[in-house]
Each structure stands twice: as structure tokens, then as C-alpha cells.
């Protein structure tokens, strides 16, 4: 019934319209790519001659006037460290809390659940000033670890909520079967329950990593020393100085920074498409 149907004009119009509004986005990302490998573009995105000059930040210093930019590799390492730590902590803590909220019963559980829901909607950036004070107080200002803690805390309600959902989906009977087969609670947890929510954990981890990798506002506000810069801050500074001057360099640096995101899109193209994006950004 569906195969031989001829497309109606209205349907064709919708296709065209969708293609038209989507075009600028595709165009912009194409530019990012071609701009990074060429110093001259035709029609905005067709490269005229290939050059690696724009990628020079990978092997040499970038200077503007007398200003010398930081080497990108330690900064990349910082970003990896930041995103990696956020991922690890967020997954670990939300696994623990999600399990408790899903399968344990204790006084105050309902309250914690409701608070989590509200926090899930509550935008942490509104608290930036106070967060500055807190970080300063606990001696974590200007440290990557400080940004890690904040980012983890602000993403925890959502991650915990998701993980709780995964635990909720595992039927009690499976857990019970494990007890009948002779498992202790701990054994049932890591031999039977954890393996079943692996895909969910992976998804939470991926999103935690990407969120950490993309993180800008906290690094920008709470980190001052250049040795603690992350790629986001580095690129922001680069844009400040090279805008109008060298878009090729900016495109290359931007693309370099995008690598994990692109990898994510290529690897998970289908399975992760419909997954949670809510509440992360406005």
C-alpha cells in the first residue's frame, strides 16, 4: 500500500521547504570543514586550493602581534581531563543514587525525588555568583576540579533521573530470580542488574562527556590561569583576536574542537538520535 504511492504535490512541497530551511545549517558546517583546509573559498564554501596552514596551531605557536597563544596540546589535555572526570563522577554518582531512588525505600525518598525533578528544571547558571563564592571558599577556584564538581552537580539531577528510569524498567522478577539462584544483594546488582542497563549507562556517559567537553561558561568564569584553560576558553580567546583576520584558523580550531562531537554523530547516528537532549541547554 505504501510502496507504489505517488508523492502528492503537498508532500513534495514539504520536502523542498524542509530542505530549504535546513540548507543554511548544512552550509555552515560545510564551511567549517572547507574553511579549515583552504585559505580561499569560492561561493562561500568551495575551497580553492588545499592548505594545511590553518591547522598550524597543532604544531607551532600562534602569535598575533606580540601576543603568543598557548600550545593547544596541554589545553586539549585539560579538556579531556575535564570531560573525562565529569563523565566518571557523573556516571558513578548517578548510578548509586539512581539505584537507591529506584529500588530502595527510605524516609525522605519522595522528597528527594520531587526536589530532583524541580532541580532538573532549575537552571544552575542563575547561581553563578554564589557558585564563585563557594568555589573560592573550598579552595577550588581557578582549578579544573572545581569546574568538574560544579558541572557534575548541575547535571546530576538529570542523569540520576535517567538512570533511575533504567533501573525502574528492570522487572523485579529478574532481580528476585537472582536471589533465588543464590545471589547476595551485591552480586545481584553487578551480575544481573548492571549488565542490563549497560546501554543506558553508555548513553549517560556519552552525554556527560559531550556536555563536559562543550562546557564553556564555568571554565570561562572560574578559571583564570592559562595553564588551566580548556579548549572552549582557548577558542573563545582565539575568536576574540582573529575574528575578521583569519577565519581559516578559526575554522580549523573549531573543527578540531568538534572532533568528539563529530565522532559521536558518526558512531551513534541512528541509535542515539532520539535520546534525551532535554534540559541541557536553552
Amino acid at each position: 500500500m505504501k510502496a507504489i504511492k505517488i508523492m502528492s504535490p503537498s508532500r513534495i512541497a514539504i520536502y523542498l521547504l524542509l530542505a530549504a530551511v535546513s540548507f543554511p545549517i548544512v552550509f555552515a558546517y560545510l564551511w567549517l570543514f572547507s574553511g579549515s583546509i583552504s585559505d580561499e573559498l569560492e561561493f562561500g564554501i568551495v575551497p580553492k586550493g588545499i592548505t594545511l596552514e590553518n591547522w598550524r596551531f597543532l604544531w607551532s605557536e600562534i602569535t598575533i602581534g606580540t601576543k603568543v597563544f598557548e600550545n593547544i596540546w596541554p589545553i586539549t589535555l585539560n579538556s579531556l581531563l575535564l570531560a573525562g572526570s565529569i563523565t566518571l563522577l557523573e556516571v558513578l554518582i548517578s548510578l548509586l543514587a539512581g539505584y537507591a531512588l529506584s529500588r530502595m525505600n527510605f524516609p525522605g525518598k519522595d522528597f528527594i525525588l520531587k526536589t530532583t525533578i524541580i532541580l532538573h528544571a532549575f537552571p544552575g547558571v542563575a547561581l553563578l555568583i554564589a557558585l564563585y563564592y563557594v568555589l573560592n571558599y573550598i579552595g577550588m577556584i581557578d582549578k579544573i576540579a572545581g569546574v568538574v564538581l560544579i558541572k557534575v552537580a548541575l547535571e546530576l539531577p538529570m542523569a540520576t533521573w535517567m538512570i533511575k528510569g533504567f533501573f525502574d524498567e528492570i522487572p523485579w522478577e529478574i532481580e528476585w530470580a537472582a536471589y533465588m539462584d543464590g545471589c547476595s544483594r551485591l552480586q545481584a546488582w553487578y551480575k544481573i542488574i548492571l549488565p542490563q542497563i549497560k546501554p543506558g549507562i553508555a548513553a549517560v556517559a556519552i552525554f556527560a562527556f559531550l556536555a563536559g567537553w562543550s562546557e564553556f561558561i564555568y571554565s570561562y568564569t572560574f578559571i583564570f590561569s592559562s595553564e588551566n584553560y580548556t579548549l572552549a576558553v582557548f577558542l573563545k580567546n582565539l575568536i576574540g583576536d582573529f575574528r575578521f583576520l583569519d577565519y581559516g584558523l578559526l575554522a580549523a580550531a573549531g573543527l578540531f574542537y568538534m572532533i568528539p562531537v563529530i565522532a559521536f554523530f558518526l558512531i551513534s547516528q541512528k541509535s542515539l538520535m532520539t535520546i534525551k537532549f532535554g534540559g541541557i541547554k536553552g
Binding site: I25, A28, S214, L235, L250, V261
Partner: peptide, 29 residues
């Protein structure tokens, strides 16, 4: 899926890069 992926791109792009794209797109020169 293709279209939905395209529209997911801005959301998944790091804010700094997304801003860069806008700055370039709307460059005054």
C-alpha cells in the same frame, strides 16, 4: 533521520563553535 540529525547539530555543537559559526555567517565585511 537525515533531517533530524541536521537539526540536532546546533544543539550538540559546543557553544563556542556555534557562536563562531554565527559570527562568521553574519560577519560585517
Amino acid at each position: 533521520l537525515l533531517f533530524q540529525t541536521i537539526w540536532m547539530l546546533p544543539r550538540m555543537t559546543p557553544p563556542v563553535v556555534y557562536a563562531l559559526l554565527w559570527l562568521w555567517f553574519l560577519d560585517p565585511t
